[in-house]
Write a protein that binds this DNA or RNA. Structure first.
Lengths: 221, 221
DNA sequence: CAAGATTTTTGACAATCGTCAAGATAATCT
DNA sequence: AGATTATCTTGACGATTGTCAAAAATCTTG
């Protein structure tokens, strides 16, 4: 029924209050609904990472899930709504990747080594997901609907890089020598090129990235 | 006729020799053929810059040209061939943008000022073309056919940035303090974010970019 | 268990896609 | 000028797209 559906949409966008006792069943319904949204968003992410935005269709996404294509229209108003949900969900999985190492490390050497290792892992194991990120970020240059979410993720990534550099600097009793924006631009640019080289079959891509970052980080923090 | 067409294709890829006298007419034919290819590629670039790769169709491209959609298949074997031609053509227009200022400037201040101004112009006047570049570069992460050309352009852009920084450094009797790759990564990253902000309607985007670059360039070169 | 609501499947729709071939038009050559 | 290429238009093809509605299946509730 349409009315119910619209209501759910609203409930999802404004996070559920906690909680008059009578709402519990209603809330569990909403949770279930939004849980399925996430489940479908995950299938969509998988498809997008494999095919890219331009070649990803709703039917292809549905095939990666355990449902048929019609169900997507039940949980999402349209394709844009689905992709936006994907982008938001992507963020959570991504942004805390280096936090453990950052807080665990007790020396600059330890942090640098741990960071470089994780960085290499990331390129090696999650190249597909990252190319999707760059794809979607580029899409946001054309599709206004993506911009807010993309900008927010971009900021989160900047913060992530900044946490690493700040920690690295403070372990040497210093402060980073450049702005958060510049630092993120630098690392993001290096990462992006490394990704292209890696996906092109360049075996040295990861090692070169690690070497470059290993050289740069001590000079800027 | 098919045979002729294939022959032309070949002729284009291997640059025409100069030149037995009897070849002249043949060469002028080839030139005309490849001139039209470029003409169509330009219409394609316009369309791509407006709609993005994902939403650009051959019919849409033809509409921006003075021909109908069938002609595209006469001049290009398929869509990938067309886009590749676009990418290659894009490069030439793009890569020498700062060369005049770089070689004309006689002091660090003059170079910096001229560079920042041109940088701002670029974002303001050619935002569409640049978002297309980022779009196509992202596509190359998925579509193998684009990778060689994209990588080559990326290298050309790195060289372009390096020429500026080298000149800037030598005007102060120095040498750049970072690698060409790192420098390009930094500038490209800053530019990319500025572009997103600018397209989102952020009036401060360009000024912030100029300020950041103005602060950074003297510290790295 | 029966009635109602929710979730999922199925199939259809109009539109659009890349590709291609046949024929019309324009240019070139003998 | 007529004959021969070269170029361009037209229309069609099969496939695929996002969207949607009706029916089937499943779950919830009385």
């Amino acid at each position: 029924m349409r009315k119910q559906f619209a209501e759910r949409q609203r409930k999802i966008e404004t996070p559920s209050r906690l909680s008059k006792p009578s709402d519990r069943i209603e809330r569990s319904r909403v949770d279930k609904f939004s849980a399925r949204r996430i489940e479908l968003a995950e299938a969509a992410l998988e498809t997008l990472a494999e095919l890219g935005y331009a070649r990803t269709s709703l039917r292809e996404i549905a095939q990666k899930s355990e449902f048929t294509h019609g169900v997507l229209h039940y949980y999402f108003t349209d394709k844009v709504d689905l992709i936006c949900c994907c982008v938001r969900h992507y963020k959570a999985k991504c942004v805390t990747r280096y936090d453990r190492i950052t807080s665990a490390a007790q020396s600059r050497d330890e942090l640098l080594k741990g960071f470089l290792e994780k960085l290499g892992e990331t390129v090696r194991d999650e190249a597909q997901m990252h190319r999707l990120w760059y794809d979607l970020r580029s899409q946001s240059l054309f599709e206004e609907a993506f911009r807010d979410d993309v900008t927010e993720i971009d900021k989160s990534l900047e913060d992530m890089v900044w946490r690493i550099a700040s920690r690295f600097a403070s372990l040497g009793g210093r402060q980073p020598a450049v702005s958060p924006g510049a630092l993120y631009a630098l690392f993001d640019g290096l990462f992006q090129r490394c990704l292209l080289r890696h996906l092109s079959g360049d075996r040295r891509a990861i090692a070169d990235l690690q070497e470059e970052v290993g050289r740069l980080l001590p000079t800027v923090a």
